[in-house]
Design a protein around this nucleic acid. Structure first.
Length: 510
RNA sequence: GGCUCGUUGGUCAAGGGGUCAAGACGCCGCCCUCUCACGGCGGAAUCACGGGUUCGAUUCCCGUACGAGCUGCCA
C-alpha cells in the first residue's frame, strides 16, 4: 500500500467537501418523545448544512417494528416545526432521494438487494442459526470483585458458524424457508481505521468487531445497515450522530469499503448527561423536548441552550437565535467531553428570553398560566407585565400571582422589617391613618394611589418604606410580590383593597 | 471482562509549551429600591494524579485513577 489508508480517505473527504453540496440528515426512530440528545443532534446537523448553504434531510428510521410507537411521528414533525429546524427533504417533501421512510424503502427491496450484493462479494453471508444455538454461545464475563454493573455481564460472540455452510446447504435452507439473517463478514485479522472530525483517527482490531446482522429474519434491515445504504444513496456528506455510535463506526467503515463507496465525514457528538454524569433518562424529568415545554420553557431557549452543550461561539455570545447560530456555527470546534445538562442555566436562559420578549407575545403565552390562577376580573395584562421580569419559566407564574386571587393567611410578623424600619405597631398606625384616605379615593389608578400614599409619607415625615411596606403587606399578605403597593392596589381595585387593609388592621389590633 | 473515548472552577466553557488561565450560569457581597425581581459593580472558586520530553508544561508523550459509551435480529 502506497499510502496509509486514512490519508487516502482524508483526501477523498476533502474532495467531497469542496466539490459537492453539504447534505446532512436527521434520522430519528419513531419510538416516543424527542430526547434532548437527539434534539441536539438534529440541531447540529441542521446548523452544519445551513452554515454551508446545504440541505437538511429528515429520514424516518422505523426498521424496528416492535418499538414503533403511535403518534411518535407527529412528535417528530411537531418538534422540528416548533424548533424551527425545517428540513429541505423528508417524507412529505420529496427531493428526489425518496422514499424517506425506511419501512417504505424496505418494501421496495432496497436493503435486501444491497445485502445480496455483499453476499456475492463474500462480504456478507446467510446465517440460519437458531436462537438456541446463539444462546449456547452466550458467555458471562467476570467483573471486578467489587460490585459493579459489569459484574456477570453476558455477551454473545458469534462464531461465524454459517460462514462455512456449503452452497448446497444454503440453497436447501433457503428453499425450505428456514428463517435466516444476513451477517456482515468481518475478517479476524487486520485493523479498521476511520476519521472523525471531532475525535480524530480511531483504529480498532477487526477481531473486536462482531459479524453484525445486516438483514433481520423479518426481512427488515438493522439500523446499522440501513443507515449506511441510505446515507450513501441519499448522498449524505456529513454524518452527524451521538457519541454512542463511535464504537460501531468501524463496522460502517467496513461496509463502505465492502461496497467500494466513499465514506462521509463523521461528526460524532459528545454525550449529554444529567447532574450525576449519567446518561439522561426518562426519569431525569428533562429528558425530552416535550417535557421541557411542559415545564414552562420556550423552544427558542431550549434550542439555544442545547446548542451550547458541546460548543461555544467564537465571540463568546450566548443568547443566540437559530439564524445567528447558523451564521457562526463551526462543527470543527465541538467539544469532545460530555456535557451536563444544567437545568439551572436553562432556567436562567429561559428567563432571559422571557424578559426580552415582546409584550404582546409574552402576554399571549403567559395568559393560560395566569388564567389558571386568576378567575376574578382583574387587569390580566398588567399582571403579565409585572411578572415578566420575575420569572424563569411559565410555571413560576402561579406562586407569584396567586395572592391576587385570594389573600393568603399570613402572620403579622410580616409587618416587621428592620431594613424598612417598621414593625406591627407602626404598621397599624399607618394603615389606620391611610384607610380613610383610601376610602375617600375613587380613582384607583396607580398614579392616584401613589399620590395618596406619598403625600401621607411627606406629611408624617416618615421613610418611604415605613409607609409603603405596611400597605403592600396588607394588600398582598406576602413577603415579596411582583410590583409594589400602587400596582397591587390598582389591580385589586377599591373594594378588595379596602377589605384587605381592614383585615390587616384587625389582625394587628388583635 | 474486552474494546473505544473522555477528564480546565459546582455546571457550561475559551485557551493549547512562557497568560494575573477568558466569559457565562450558580453562589456571596455592595449599589439601586416600598418587597422580590430587573439593572449596575465587585468577590470566592479550576487545569484529576504520577512520571517523562523541555530552559519552561494546563497545553506534547506514557501510565494510573475516575467517568462514559459499545459489546442486541435497539437505535
Amino acid at each position: 500500500m502506497l499510502f496509509p489508508n486514512y490519508l487516502y480517505r482524508i483526501d477523498i473527504m476533502k474532495g467531497r467537501e469542496n466539490m459537492s453540496k453539504v447534505r446532512t440528515r436527521f434520522a430519528p426512530s419513531p419510538t416516543g418523545k424527542m430526547h434532548v440528545g437527539n434534539l441536539r443532534t438534529a440541531l447540529y446537523a441542521y446548523l452544519i448544512a445551513k452554515h454551508e448553504g446545504g440541505d437538511f434531510v429528515l429520514r424516518i428510521e422505523d426498521t424496528d417494528q416492535e418499538r414503533y410507537v403511535d403518534g411518535a411521528l407527529d412528535i417528530i414533525y411537531n418538534t422540528m416545526k416548533g424548533t424551527g429546524l425545517l428540513h429541505d427533504e423528508g417524507p412529505e417533501k420529496d427531493g428526489g432521494y425518496g422514499p424517506y421512510v425506511q419501512s417504505e424503502r424496505q418494501a421496495q427491496g432496497i436493503y435486501l438487494e444491497y445485502a445480496k450484493q455483499l453476499v456475492e462479494k463474500g462480504e456478507a453471508y446467510y446465517c440460519f442459526c437458531s436462537k438456541d444455538r446463539l444462546e449456547s454461545l452466550r458467555t458471562t464475563v467476570k467483573g471486578p470483585e467489587a460490585d459493579g454493573d459489569d459484574n456477570g455481564k453476558e455477551i454473545i460472540k458469534y462464531d461465524k458458524h454459517c460462514l462455512h455452510l456449503s452452497k448446497e446447504e444454503i440453497e436447501k435452507n433457503l428453499a425450505e424457508k428456514v428463517p435466516y439473517v444476513i451477517r456482515q463478514n468481518i475478517p479476524l485479522d487486520g485493523k479498521t481505521t476511520f476519521d472523525d472530525v471531532i475525535f480524530g483517527e480511531i483504529s480498532v482490531d477487526n477481531e473486536e468487531l462482531d459479524d453484525m446482522i445486516l438483514i433481520k429474519s423479518d426481512g427488515y434491515p438493522t439500523y446499522n445497515f440501513a443507515n449506511v445504504v441510505d446515507d450513501h444513496l441519499m448522498e449524505i456528506s456529513h454524518v452527524v450522530r451521538g457519541n454512542e455510535y463511535l464504537s460501531s463506526t468501524p463496522k460502517y467503515t467496513r461496509l463502505y469499503q465492502a461496497f467500494g463507496w466513499d465514506e462521509p465525514v463523521y461528526v460524532h457528538l459528545p454525550l449529554i448527561t444529567n447532574e450525576e454524569h449519567k446518561k439522561l433518562s426518562k426519569r431525569s424529568g428533562h429528558s425530552s423536548f416535550e417535557d421541557l415545554l411542559d415545564q414552562g420553557f420556550i423552544s427558542e431557549a431550549i434550542v439555544n441552550f442545547v446548542a451550547l452543550l458541546g460548543w461555544s461561539a467564537p465571540n463568546n455570545k450566548e443568547i443566540m437565535s437559530l439564524d445567528e447560530l447558523v451564521e457562526v456555527f463551526d462543527y470543527r470546534h465541538v467539544n469532545k467531553s460530555p456535557a451536563v445538562f444544567d437545568m439551572v442555566k436553562l432556567r436562567w436562559m429561559n428567563g432571559e428570553y422571557l424578559k426580552n420578549m415582546e409584550e404582546e407575545k409574552f402576554f399571549n403565552l403567559a395568559l393560560p398560566y395566569i388564567k389558571e390562577v386568576i378567575s376574578k376580573d382583574l387587569d390580566i395584562k398588567r399582571i403579565a407585565e409585572l411578572v415578566k421580569t420575575r420569572i424563569e419559566t411559565f410555571l413560576d407564574i402561579k406562586d407569584k400571582i396567586d395572592f391576587f386571587e385570594e389573600l393568603p393567611d399570613y402572620d403579622i410578623q410580616m409587618f416587621t422589617h428592620k431594613k424598612m424600619k417598621t414593625n406591627s405597631e407602626n404598621s397599624l398606625l399607618v394603615l389606620n391613618d391611610l384607610l380613610p384616605r383610601f376610602e375617600a379615593l375613587d380613582d384607583y389608578s396607580e398614579a392616584a394611589i401613589e399620590e395618596t400614599i406619598i403625600s401621607y409619607i411627606k406629611e408624617k415625615e416618615i421613610k418611604n418604606g415605613q409607609g409603603l411596606w405596611p400597605v403592600r403587606t396588607a394588600v398582598s399578605g406576602k413577603q415579596s410580590t411582583p410590583g409594589g403597593a400602587y400596582e397591587i392596589m390598582s389591580i385589586l381595585g377599591k373594594e378588595e383593597s379596602l377589605r384587605r387593609i381592614r383585615i390587616a388592621i384587625e389582625k394587628l389590633s388583635f
